[in-house]
Design a protein around this nucleic acid. Sequence first.
DNA 1: CGCCTTTGACCTGCGC
DNA 2: GCGCAGGTCAAAGGCG
Length: 367
Amino acid sequence: MEFTSLVDTSLDLSFRLRPVLEKVPKQEVQSDFTGLSRERENMGVKNEAGDLLEELNRVSSENKKLTEMLTVVCENYNALRNQMMEYMSTQNGVAEDSSAGSRKRKAESISNISNPVNNNNNNNNNMDVVHGRSSESSSSDEESCCKKLREEHIKAKVTIVSMKTDASDTSLIVKDGYQWRKYGQKVTRDNPCPRAYFRCSFAPGCPVKKKVQRSIEDQSIVVATYEGEHNHPQTSKPESGASTNTSTASRLNVTTIAGTTTSVPCSTTLNSSGPTITLDLTAPKTVEKRDMKMNHSTTSPTGGNSIRTTTSSSTTTGGEYQNRPEFQQFLIEQMATSLTKDPSFKAALAAAISGKILQHNNQTGRW
DNA sequence: CGCCTTTGACCTGCGC
DNA sequence: GCGCAGGTCAAAGGCG
């Protein structure tokens, strides 16, 4: 997976700049020039419009710079990572040689890992391939460095998804559009409910793993932890939640490992694309009127298990409470807070805004 | 027959 | 070094 795919720049930020700008000349046309005070007012409006245009130009150029910086950072990251993977694959080869003759299971696991996964995942640059003990002769600095990088890499790909299901359903099966093979079940210390371990079985080399466990607080909530990244497209149309679940009844939390948790009443659809956050800011009315249509889609960076949640004040089935302006405002603030804390969202937003503004410039030839 | 789940044993990392 | 807990393996059995 390329890093650039982490930053999905396909944000649907259909900026309605034109109506805002069109207001200014409209006012000019509507104005008569009979009174000095009015003239002063018009001058003020013109100045304001000029200031706004200047500001927009400034923001536009700033965004352009940011986009360029982001591109450079992505390129550097990819180059570094390729170097890292080359180094690690050579180290892995050494480890295989040196560990021959150690315990049977260990040797098997090394060969299991190095053969199918390496063969299939070179393009994915999956760092999970280096589970075997690295050679004892390698320097400890490099070893710890690799370990840290691996941990960070894995950490970055962990997503926790919780969904409400029928409490009587003990299958622990979460239909998310992928094919999973259960390879273990364990009762953990902190939760009497067993934890099930799944591996993606659609593609033989797919490194994605999934842990599913019922919440200790609410047994009707199933918590699925996705680790890794699919190296294949989604196999089928997913169903939200467990088999007994209906999409409209589910309530779903999405937590990225370093990020925040978003909890929303939702209808869910899942897809296998990369991490996308889609904001539909094309609502005809202003935010002040709190009639804002938000289409918030969060995709798991790990399991390709994306959850698209749609919240609309006009269409939400949550009843009157959710139609209340206070709730809408709260929801918007919560989402804004969550999103502004997410660096990848910031980067994506910057790219999207600059793209849109540049596109707008090209189309209109204005400013 | 192939694929899946179950389940006890084994492996490994971590804290003490 | 030891014990614990989480994660993984793989044999056995079920099912279509």
